[in-house]
Design a binder for these strands. Structure first.
Length: 687
DNA sequence: GCCGCAGCTT
C-alpha cells in the first residue's frame, strides 16, 4: 500500500514531465525487491492519469521501457509481453530483457523465437548480453544444432571469445552430453573463471564421468583457483557416487573454514554425500544443525534413509516435514513410493498414491514411474498396467518400470514382448532398459537369442555401457557359453572392469563347473588391484565347491580371513560346509559351523544335512536335522532328508517315526499336496 | 538512454 501513497505524491505535481521522471525512479526502486504488486499499482496509475499520452514521446517510451524491463525482471510474462507488443520499435535492451525473461522462466522456445525475430527486425546486431540467454535456452531445450548456430552468430558479431558466452556454450555442450566438445572449448579458453571450472565439474558428473570431475577439481586446486560454494555443490555428488568419503569430509571442512555454508544447497549436497557414503549419523547432524530447511533437505534425508535400508525412518519424516511447512514435491513422493515398493507395503503405497492424486502430482513422469514400479513389486501387475496405459507413451522411465514389473512377476516373455512394443512405439531405450531385458533373456537361457541381442547391442552402441556389457557377460555365462562371455569381458577396458563384472565372470565359470577357471579369474582380479567383496568370495567358494576343489577352497577361505580381513558371512560358511561335505569331510564341516561367531542359519545346516545324506552319516545328520527342525519347523524337506538317512542305514523304525512327524506337521502346516508328496517319498523309501 | 549476462543439490 506504500506504493499507492508514493504514486499519489508523484501525481500531485502539476508538471507531467516531473511526474514521468518520478515514475521512472519509482519503477527502478522496485527492481531489486521485485515488488510486482507495487509495480502493477503504479502501472494502473500511469494509465489512468494519462501520463503515457500527455508526456513527450521520449518520456512515454522511457516509461514503457522501464515498466517492461521491470515486469520482465519480476517474471510477469503476460504484462511484459503486452507492453512489448505495443512498442513499434523495441530497443536492443528490451529484446534482451524479454529473451532473458523467457529463458529464465523456462519458456525457452519463446526465447529462441524472439531472438530470431530480433535478428530480422533490429538494425543493430545482438550484443554480448543476448547470446548467453539464447544459448541457455538452447541448452534447456537440448537444441544442440541451434545452439551451435547461435554461437556462430556470436563469433561473427565479435563475441565469440566473451567469457559469459563461452561459459554458456560449455554448459550447453555438457547438457547435451558432448563432453569432448565441452572439453575442447574449456581447453582453448584464454581466461577461466571459477564458473568455467564448476561447469566442467558438474557437467562431467551429470554425464557419468565422476572420476573426470575429480581430475578437474584437482587441477583447479593445483592452479590455486579459488573455489566457491557452487564448486562444492557440483563436486559433492561425485564424492557420493564414488564413495569418496575422505574428499567429501575435506569439502565439508572447507565449507566450515571458508564460510561457504550460506546457501541451503551446500548443506543439502553434504547430507546427500554422507548418506550415499553410508554415514547416516553425520547426515543427521547436519540436518539437525540447519536453521532453515527446504524441500530438497527433507528429500535427500528421506532418500538417504531409504538408500541405507531404513525405510521406517524415511516414512517417519513425512509428518514432521509438513509440520515444518515444507510441501513434499514429486521427487519426495516418488522416493517414498519406491520405499513402499522395497518393503512391498501396498497399503502405505496406496496412501501416498492418494496423496499424489490430491496434490495433482500423479501425472508427473517420475511419480508415475514410481507407482508403476510399486504396484508391480507388490505383485499387482494389473494395477501397474492400468496406470501405465494412462501414461504418455514416449517416455523411457515408465516403460522401464513396466518391463521390470513383468520380470518381477516372472513374465520373461512378457518383458521381451513389451520391449518390442516399446521399439515399435519409437520410445528410446536406455541402459536400464537393457539391464532388464538381459535378465529376461537370462531366464530363457537361449544361446541363439543371446547372439541376436548381442548384435543388437553392438549396432545400437549400448554395449559401451558398462552395466549392459556386464549383463551380456552374465547372459552368455547362463547360456553356458563361457567363451563368448569371456570374449565380451576381454573387450572391456581394464580400467572399466569393476567388481561386479569380475564377480559375474567368476560366478559364470563356477556355475558351469569350471572351478579352476573361476579361481584363475579371481586371482587375476586381485592382481589387477580390484578388492574382492562378500559376493566375489561367495562366487569363488561356490565355484570350488561345485568343482570339488576342496583344498583350494579352504585356502581361499583362509585368505579371505587373513589377507582381505573380510568378515565371513553365512553364505561363505554355507559354501565351505557344502565344499567339505561333498567330499565326506563331515566332521570338519561341523567344526567349522561351531566356529561361526554369529547365529547359524538354515542354509548352513541344510548344507550339512544334505552332505550327511550323501555320505549316510546318521550322527551328524541328526544334529543338523534337529537344528533345522527348530529353525524351519514347517519345511518338510528336512524331515524327508533325515528319513532318507535312516532308511539308507536300515533304521526303519526311526524313519517311520519321522514319517508320522511329517504327517502331523503336514496336516497342520503345509499344503495338502506337499504332505502327500512327503508321505509318498517316505513310503517309497520304506518299501 | 535503462547497464544486464554464465555455473550449483533431491
Amino acid at each position: 500500500m506504500n506504493g499507492v501513497s508514493e504514486v499519489a505524491v508523484a501525481s500531485k505535481t502539476k508538471n507531467g514531465l516531473l511526474s514521468a521522471v518520478q515514475c521512472v525512479s519509482l519503477i527502478q526502486s522496485y527492481i531489486v525487491p521485485r515488488s510486482l504488486t507495487k509495480l502493477k499499482q503504479l502501472h494502473a496509475h500511469i494509465i489512468t492519469s494519462g501520463l503515457l499520452y500527455f508526456s513527450s514521446y521520449y518520456h512515454s517510451v522511457h516509461l514503457r521501457s522501464n515498466l517492461l524491463s521491470t515486469y520482465a525482471l519480476c517474471g510477469s510474462e503476460a504484462n511484459a509481453r503486452k507492453l512489448f507488443d505495443e512498442l513499434p520499435k523495441p530497443s536492443l535492451f528490451l529484446y534482451n530483457a524479454m529473451i532473458r525473461m523467457y529463458s529464465q522462466s523456462g519458456s525457452s522456445v519463446e526465447a529462441v523465437k524472439l531472438f530470431i525475430r530480433m535478428l530480422s527486425s533490429v538494425p543493430f546486431r545482438a550484443n554480448k548480453f543476448t547470446y548467453p540467454f539464447v544459448i541457455k535456452a538452447c541448452r534447456d531445450l537440448s537444441w544442440l544444432k541451434v545452439g551451435v548456430l547461435v554461437y556462430g552468430k556470436a563469433i561473427r558479431s565479435g563475441h565469440g571469445r566473451d567469457m559469459f558466452v563461452l561459459n554458456s556454450l560449455l554448459a550447453m555442450y555438457m547438457n547435451c552430453g558432448k563432453t569432448e566438445a565441452a572439453r575442447w572449448v574449456f581447453d582453448t579458453m584464454r581466461e577461466r573463471t571459477v564458473v568455467a571450472w564448476n561447469t566442467m565439474i558438474s557437467g562431467y558428473v551429470k554425464n557419468g564421468f565422476a572420476n573426470e570431475a575429480l581430475v578437474i577439481f584437482n587441477q583447479m586446486v593445483d592452479l590455486d583457483v579459488e573455489l566457491d560454494s557452487a564448486t562444492i555443490v557440483s563436486l559433492l555428488p561425485a564424492c557420493g557416487e564414488l564413495k569418496e568419503l575422505a574428499l567429501g569430509r575435506k569439502l565439508h571442512a572447507v565449507v566450515e573454514e571458508k564460510g561457504l555454508g550460506d546457501s541451503i544447497s551446500v548443506w543439502n549436497s553434504l547430507i546427500d554425500m554422507y548418506t550415499k557414503c553410508g554415514c547416516m549419523d553425520e547426515a543427521r547432524v547436519i540436518f539437525g544443525n540447519m536453521t532453515e530447511r527446504d524441500v530438497v533437505t527433507w528429500t535427500v534425508t528421506i532418500n538417504g534413509y531409504i538408500l541405507n535400508g531404513d525405510e521406517r525412518s524415511a516414512f517417519g519424516l513425512w509428518r514432521p516435514m509438513q509440520l515444518e511447512g515444507i510441501k513434499p514435491n514429486t521427487v519426495t513422493i516418488a522416493s517414498l513410493i519406491s520405499a513402499c515398493a522395497n518393503l512391498q507395503e501396498l497399503k502405505r503405497g496406496m496412501c501416498f498414491h492418494g496423496w499424489a492424486v490430491r496434490q495433482k502430482l500423479e501425472d508427473d513422469v517420475i511419480v508415475k514411474t514410481a507407482l508403476i514400479d510399486m504396484y508391480a513389486k507388490c505383485n499387482w501387475l494389473g494395477l501397474s498396467f492400468r496406470l501405465f496405459t494412462r501414461t504418455p507413451e514416449n517416455q523411457t522411465g515408465p516403460w522401464n518400470a513396466i518391463l521390470s514389473g513383468c520380470m518381477h512377476n516372472g513374465l520373461a516373455t512378457g518383458t521381451i514382448k513389451n520391449f518390442k512394443q516399446m521399439l515399435y512405439k519409437k520410445v528410446d531405450p536406455d541402459g536400464a532398459t537393457f539391464n532388464i531385458l538381459l535378465t529376461a533373456y537370462v531366464t530363457l537361457a537361449d544361446l541363439e537369442q543371446a547372439y541376436n541381442i548381442h548384435g543388437y547391442l553392438i549396432r545400437t552402441g549400448f554395449l559401451s555401457i558398462n552395466e549392459v556389457a556386464t549383463g551380456l557377460v552374465d547372459l552368455y555365462s547362463k547360456c553356458g557359453s563361457l567363451e563368448s562371455a569371456h570374449e565380451i569381458f576381454n573387450g572391456i577396458a581394464v580400467r572399466c572392469r569393476d567388481i561386479i563384472l569380475w564377480s559375474v565372470l567368476i560366478a559364470g565359470y563356477g556355475n558351469n563347473g569350471d572351478g579352476e577357471a573361476a579361481v584363475s579369474v579371481f586371482k587375476q582380479m586381485v592382481q589387477f588391484g580390484v578388492k574382492p567383496n562378500e559376493v566375489t568370495f561367495t562366487s569363488v567358494l561356490h565355484a570350488c565347491s561345485h568343482a570339488g576343489l576342496v583344498d583350494l577352497g579352504l585356502d581361499l577361505f583362509k585368505l579371505m580371513l587373513k589377507e582381505h580381513q573380510s568378515l565371513p558371512c553365512t553364505d561363505h560358511y554355507t559354501c565351505m560346509v557344502d565344499l567339505l561335505g561333498r567330499v565326506g569331510r563331515l566332521q570338519e564341516a561341523y567344526e567349522l559351523i561351531s566356529t561361526m561367531r554369529f547365529q547359524s542359519n538354515h542354509a548352513v545346516w541344510g548344507a550339512l544335512l544334505g552332505a550327511c545324506v550323501i555320505h549316510e552319516n546318521v550322527a551328524l545328520g541328526v544334529v543338523a536335522a534337529r537344528r533345522l527342525f527348530e529353525l524351519e519347523p514347517e519345511n518338510t524337506g528336512n524331515y524327508v532328508l533325515l528319513a532318507k538317512i535312516y532308511a539308507a542305514v536300515g533304521r526303519w523304525g526311526d524313519a517311520e517315526n519321522i514319517r508320522s512327524m511329517i504327517n502331523d506337521i503336514g496336516l497342520r502346516k503345509t499344503p495338502a499336496h506337499s504332505s502327500i508328496e512327503v508321505r509318498d517319498t517316505c513310503k517309497g523309501m520304506l518299501q
